[in-house]
Every structure is written in structure tokens, then in C-alpha cells.
Design a protein around this nucleic acid. Structure first.
Length: 117
DNA sequence: CGCTTGACCACCC
DNA sequence: CGGGTGGCCAAGC
């Protein structure tokens, strides 16, 4: 992974972006998992808010790999095209139906586990 | 400065 | 299946 933000702007948002960019191809995670990994277990909403501002990030953020705890593509309406998120996930090998990842359990990527904390 | 909203989560009815 | 409540924290008005 990249070096830690030495800048003062190491905010929750930047942290979220880093984690999301670390998500391997074909893998997905949840807002709550990211929030928990960052130390704010109950701040899942902040992760979503960070994603909302992801366009603010200089680098592209694979937000389509972040879904809710249900494996549901809750943020699909923020990709410009509601079908884009689903297609991106299917493109990476995910099985999506009714805006839900069926093999979510298999594709789930736990940041606190896969990264060796 | 305070209330409302939000790409969430969990529990309850 | 639907809906409501509490918690969380930040941004918008």
C-alpha cells in the first residue's frame, strides 16, 4: 500500500479512499467493515458520505466494490448510471441479481483480515 | 448555532 | 414483506 498520508489532510475520507483502493479485483467489502477497520465501528454512514465525496479524490475510487452489509448495491444511483455498478461487479466475476451480490460471502474482503491488520 | 439529511447497521414490531 | 427507533459522525441550510 502507499505510504501513510504525511499531510494534515489525513481525514476519515482519505482513509476510506485508501482502503477502497486496496480492495483487490473481483472482491467487495461493506461500509461497516471499512468503518470498523478505521476504528469507528458505528460510523458506517461516514464511509458512505466519504464515497459521496469520492469524486473529490484525485485518483479514481472503485466505489462499486463497496456495498452494504446485505451485499446490496445501495449506492448504484450515484454512478451516473444505475446499471453501471452492477455491470462493473459482474465484469469482475460477481454474481449480481436484483441489485444484490449473491456470492457476496465469497467475494467479501475484510480489510482488517486480508491486510494483516 | 441547531435541526435535517445521508452510498449504514442493528434491533424490534 | 413492510415500517419504526436509536446510534453513529459530518455536511448543508
Amino acid at each position: 500500500m502507499k505510504p501513510v498520508k504525511t499531510d494534515d489532510q489525513a481525514s476519515f475520507f482519505e482513509n476510506v479512499y485508501e482502503v477502497v483502493k486496496l480492495i483487490p479485483y473481483g472482491r467487495v467489502t461493506s461500509y461497516g467493515a471499512i468503518a470498523a477497520f478505521l476504528g469507528s465501528r458505528g460510523s458506517a454512514r461516514m464511509v458512505g458520505w466519504a464515497m459521496n465525496a469520492s469524486h473529490h479524490s484525485p485518483e479514481p475510487v472503485p466505489a462499486h466494490r463497496v456495498v452494504n452489509r446485505n451485499g446490496l448495491l445501495t449506492g448504484k444511483h450515484h454512478f451516473g448510471n444505475p446499471d453501471l455498478m452492477r455491470q462493473l461487479l459482474e465484469q469482475e466475476g460477481a454474481v449480481v441479481e436484483e441489485d444484490k451480490i449473491l456470492n457476496f460471502k465469497e467475494l467479501f474482503w475484510d480489510p482488517s483480515r486480508e491486510t494483516g491488520f
